[in-house]
């Protein structure tokens, strides 16, 4: 039988998987509003927030939930080449294979030639990586109302500028995702562990230990996942070295939390 710590460790692998999505009150409200926005005749929806606030998870969840009812396409990694971008969209959305270079004009001709009953939804993750020129084309495409774009952006100064200059007037909905509060983080950790049947380790998290984790990660989901992964790796190591007696097992050891934070670089020591 595998150790509970090894199982718990695997829970916090940094993998974007819609089935691992944790329902939190505030997040589920945001998610619902995003879902409702999809149904509205919006040109573009902007999803922004700091890295690790769950934007990618949001897109994945959205894709999984509405893919059965809507025509929806998800691009987790940006397609940086403009021609490649048009060709991918032409093939996926409009079912037109195109060999050779495809420019915006040619792509627009394909879009106009293919009449769709419902507006297809294209989800673009990490949109800050797209060039300004391509972002301008995406804007023009959304203006035609033939494709609805949901894009995610990292919230930095530069990316704010992009959002303002190119999309401010065209965005009908902009949703900001924030880091979790201490209470939300506790629910997130415990729900995640309980979802994987790790009830014992879920019970080890009390308010104090979660507060310490929150202090270290600032409620960032990605950092929390990284920290907890290392934490349970440490627990598993102590267990295999028969050194568990030297640390707390009834609750999460603050020493191990800090050691994990040092290892992942969240604490400078």
């Amino acid at each position: 039988m595998e150790s509970i710590f090894v199982n718990s460790k695997d829970v916090f692998l940094d993998v974007v998987n819609a089935k691992d999505y944790i329902q939190l009150d505030r997040v589920s409200t945001i998610y619902q509003s995003l879902k409702d926005s999809i149904k509205k005749p919006l040109k573009m929806i902007l999803l922004y927030g700091k890295p690790g606030t769950g934007k990618s998870m949001f897109l994945n969840k959205l894709y999984k939930d509405i893919s059965t009812s809507n025509e929806i396409f998800l691009y987790n990694t940006p397609i940086l080449d403009e021609s490649e971008f048009y060709k991918t969209l032409a093939q996926d959305v409009f079912g037109t294979k195109y060999s050779g270079e495809l420019n915006f004009t040619q792509f627009m001709k394909i879009v106009e030639s293919k009449e769709k009953q419902s507006v297809p939804v294209v989800l673009l993750d990490e949109a800050q990586l797209y060039s300004e020129a391509l972002m301008e084309k995406i804007r023009l495409l959304s203006d035609t109302r033939t494709i609805k774009f949901v894009i995610t952006l990292h919230k930095t100064e530069k990316e704010d500028l992009i959002a303002k200059e190119h999309f401010q007037t065209r965005i009908w909905e902009s949703i900001e995702l924030e880091n979790a509060s201490s209470g939300e983080l506790k629910i997130y950790i415990q729900k995640k562990l309980m979802k994987a049947n790790c009830f014992d380790t879920a019970n080890m998290f009390n308010a104090k230990s979660v507060n310490l984790i929150h202090k270290i990660t600032d409620g960032n989901y990605r950092d929390t996942n990284k920290l907890l992964y290392t934490l349970f790796e440490l627990y598993a190591l102590y267990e295999s070295n028969h050194q568990l007696s030297s640390i707390k097992t009834d609750q999460i050891s603050h020493k191990l939390i800090e050691m994990s934070a040092i290892h992942v670089g969240l604490i400078d020591a």
Binding site: T230, L234, L237, Y238, N241, K255, M259, I262, H263
Partner: peptide
């Protein structure tokens, strides 16, 4: 692989 001893010293 984590080095517990080194991590403990750093801690």
């Amino acid at each position: 692989m984590l080095n517990i001893r080194e991590l403990e010293q750093r801690w």
